[in-house]
C-alpha cells in the first residue's frame, strides 16, 4: 500500500475482503439516487480505491457490451475479481438488497396513499420526468456514439423496429446485431 511507483494498483488495498465488498456495494446501492453510475465510480475508484480509473473504464466497457444491466455486470466482475464467485454474489446482494426493501416500502406507501390527489399527481409527474431521463440519456449517448452514417442507420433502424413498429426484441436484435457486426468487419478489412 501507499507507494506510487508500480504501474498498477498503486495506493489500493492489497486485498479486498468479502465484508468490504458487501458493504461497498451496499453503499453504492443505497446512495445511488438518480442512477448508481456516479456512486459506483465514487466508491470504487475514489473512496475505496479498489480500481484505477483505467481498470474501471475497462471493466465498464466490457459490462456495456454484455447483456444485462451495465452496472450489475460490473458489480459481478469486481466482486469476482477480488473474492471469486462468492465475492460476486455478495456484490450483487449488497447492490440490490436495500434498494429492493426501499422500493417495496415506497410501493406500499404509494398503494396506501394512492387516493390522495397530491400523491397521484406527484407520481404522474415523476413518471413523466423519468421518461425525460431516458430521452436525455439516449440523446447524450447518441451524441458520442453516432459518429458515422452506418452508426446513424443502425440507430434509426433499431428505433423504428422497436420504438415504432414494436417488433419483438430477440429477432430484431439478431438481425440488426449480425448486420452491424458484418458491416464493422467489412469496414475493418477495408481499412487495412
Amino acid at each position: 500500500m501507499g507507494s506510487e511507483t508500480a504501474q498498477e494498483g498503486q495506493n489500493r488495498p492489497a486485498q479486498v475482503s468479502r465484508f468490504q465488498i458487501f458493504t461497498g456495494f451496499l453503499l453504492i446501492g443505497m446512495f445511488g439516487f438518480g442512477g448508481i453510475a456516479a456512486a459506483m465510480h465514487h466508491v470504487m475508484v475514489e473512496r475505496r480505491r479498489w480500481l484505477t480509473n483505467a481498470e474501471y473504464a475497462s471493466i465498464l466497457g466490457l459490462g456495456q457490451v454484455l447483456p444485462g444491466a451495465n452496472l450489475v455486470n460490473m458489480a459481478t466482475m469486481v466482486g469476482d475479481r477480488f473474492q471469486g464467485a462468492i465475492g460476486a454474489l455478495l456484490a450483487l446482494i449488497g447492490l440490490t438488497f436495500m434498494p429492493i426493501v426501499i422500493l417495496v416500502a415506497l410501493a406500499e406507501f404509494y398503494d396506501h396513499f394512492a387516493n390522495m390527489p397530491d400523491v397521484v399527481a406527484g407520481t404522474r409527474a415523476a413518471a413523466a420526468g423519468a421518461v425525460g431521463m431516458i430521452f436525455g440519456t439516449g440523446w447524450k449517448l447518441a451524441r458520442t456514439i453516432v459518429d458515422s452514417r452506418w452508426a446513424f442507420a443502425f440507430a434509426v433502424a433499431s428505433f423504428v423496429a422497436i420504438g415504432i413498429l414494436r417488433l419483438p426484441l430477440v429477432g430484431t436484435l439478431l438481425v440488426l446485431a449480425s448486420a452491424a457486426i458484418a458491416v464493422g468487419y467489412w469496414s475493418s478489412t477495408r481499412a487495412k
Partner: peptide
Amino acid sequence: ALPPIVVGLILSSGVVTG
C-alpha cells in the same frame, strides 16, 4: 458495432414509457 443499436433501443424505451 453494437452501441448505435443500443442508442435506438434506449430512445425506444423513452417512447414506450412515454
